[in-house]
Design a protein around this nucleic acid. Sequence first.
DNA 1: GCCCCGCATGTTTACGTAAACATGGCCTGT
DNA 2: ACAGGCCATGTTTACGTAAACATGCGGGGC
Lengths: 351, 351
Amino acid sequence: MVERGSTGVPGGRRKQRVSMADVAKLAGVSSQTVSRVSNGYPGVISSTREQVLSAMRDLGYRPNSAARALRYGQFNTIGVILFSLSSTGNSRTVEAIATHAAAEGYAITLIPIDVPTQDNVLGAFTRMGELAVDAVIVIMEIHLLDTGTVQLPPGVHVVVVDSDAGDRYSVVDTDQADGTRKAVSHLLDLGHRTVWHVTGPETSFAGQRRTQAWRTVLEEAGRPVPPPLHGDWSAESGYAAGLTLAEEPDCTAVFAANDQMALGLLRAFHERGLRVPADISVVGFDDIPDAAFFVPPLTTVHQDFAEVGRRCVQDALQQIRTRGDSKPGTDLVPTRLVVRHSTAAPPEGRR
Amino acid sequence: MVERGSTGVPGGRRKQRVSMADVAKLAGVSSQTVSRVSNGYPGVISSTREQVLSAMRDLGYRPNSAARALRYGQFNTIGVILFSLSSTGNSRTVEAIATHAAAEGYAITLIPIDVPTQDNVLGAFTRMGELAVDAVIVIMEIHLLDTGTVQLPPGVHVVVVDSDAGDRYSVVDTDQADGTRKAVSHLLDLGHRTVWHVTGPETSFAGQRRTQAWRTVLEEAGRPVPPPLHGDWSAESGYAAGLTLAEEPDCTAVFAANDQMALGLLRAFHERGLRVPADISVVGFDDIPDAAFFVPPLTTVHQDFAEVGRRCVQDALQQIRTRGDSKPGTDLVPTRLVVRHSTAAPPEGRR
DNA sequence: GCCCCGCATGTTTACGTAAACATGGCCTGT
DNA sequence: ACAGGCCATGTTTACGTAAACATGCGGGGC
């Protein structure tokens, strides 16, 4: 079982992999002709081509991508650096990236950072330089990298998600501010005096932006700005915030920075005997597939992760093809408010 | 932009990448010495080493992984083929795979198959052969591959998740049967006469196994086996099943093949005025992070995706290191029943 | 004092591919 | 009929790295 490969060298340890030279020998042509057939180049007569193809089949020839990469100077691979695949948003973005990259003939290499310490991030970026990638998509708050020690290797193109480094890198992101505006305005339009807020973690740029936009909308409307409650994206943190909010008699509407925290809110309110939406309205962010099946179905801001992924790949390929000549900029993907049954007018006398 | 010539051409576009030869020239040594320094080999005097390191820094040298891979005949990369990252299970398994692989110095290349047709699968496996990977982890229903047309390229080591191809490939999976047994027995122990079931899609091996085990447990206990309701993993399909089950007066306990469908059940029962668990008990499978925050918190079977991922990597590396000498086998990861508040004894007179 | 050994470093080569250049035969146009 | 050109195919070379082999110098043992 140790020996693999194909040519019938009796007894001896066979060659690990079949090369063009092997195919060429069997087909009775030069390796260059094999190369031409392999790449579908013209200028090979059909009988020769058939012979070569047949030899390839017989030997189980597969091109060696390392040699190709060496020859061409590029790898047809895009690296994706991220903290976690656990969040719906990240995993769906990565999925879209992988799909679109595959359609363009690029593979995806995943570089996870389990614990987002400075050292780990630094390490990931250092390894990155040695990895076989033509471009890197970074899905995280790039500020973690701004302390000066880290610099991306030159010659590696970068696209950033969930960050604001638009002046230095190409940025693709959901339009957090606009989505938040839709959510908060929806609640105000229903007649709520103000809107409370459960934030995402401070390390998240997306979270920061949502909180910032929430504050701005309230201020522009001349409404009081309640103290935000701090969450970390998890349903558990939303639950904790919900227990606190249940004690606030003034609170009739809550904007959670993501759907999972909204789920925690729903459970907390249910436990405390608050009816959603009769007593209190809840809006989330993301529109995860489950949101339509929460009790009650959640009104939330739909993010188009697939589109984010698509644009990431597009930008990355653009940079690769222009060799970085394209200028950095920010590419915002629009959102959409999905109204379900977790929002309604505030109860009488509380608006 | 076409030229990629030598260093120091004033005004000219510099070489894209720095090679050992460049470092060697600057340091005044041979490229072999640079190689030795780069790989931490002994036999380089410290003053020379310092000079080389300094030159590396100055030029921003990074080893070319394509050349390395070509030289060594391996890529230090593991490919992961999957249908979707959308499911919690897959994304968490992939995350664990990526983390453990990184710890071993391996990178992960993702090969998504957006639509699981025979052709696409075939295509993915064909491309796979050309990709720069030393092993492949397949996360999907292997039955699709058993029709004979598809065969993995020889020389690529394979580990399969969610399948029963244990005789041909190395398999790692959650112990579906045992988890199901725990779930169903829990409900029977509470006093329910029998347990209804919402299945996963037929294409899923994991789903099939859960349904099979559910039936077995009931039969062994001498209980009637109600007709299973067919789901597709989505909360929506669970919701549809829930609406049907709400009309079944005999139904006091349901085992959903995953948590999302259980979520759909909860909503359907809530809408129909059935109290969970007072009127009807629900058990899920997976223990997604949100399950603890459903209304009510869901009793479910915990799957250790991280462990599945870890063992996948372990098996893959084992195969790479032994060159496939290790025999295929099935490696089952145990589950754990997490009892929350969606299960209770059946209502009086209905047990 | 001479020879040999070992150590630091240099030189050659091969990994598999494909561009660039080379060759040779046949067809076409006059 | 002959020259020129084009087409199918072969040969050479370079991509960046590292193993294998080569070199040359200094020091220790006799």
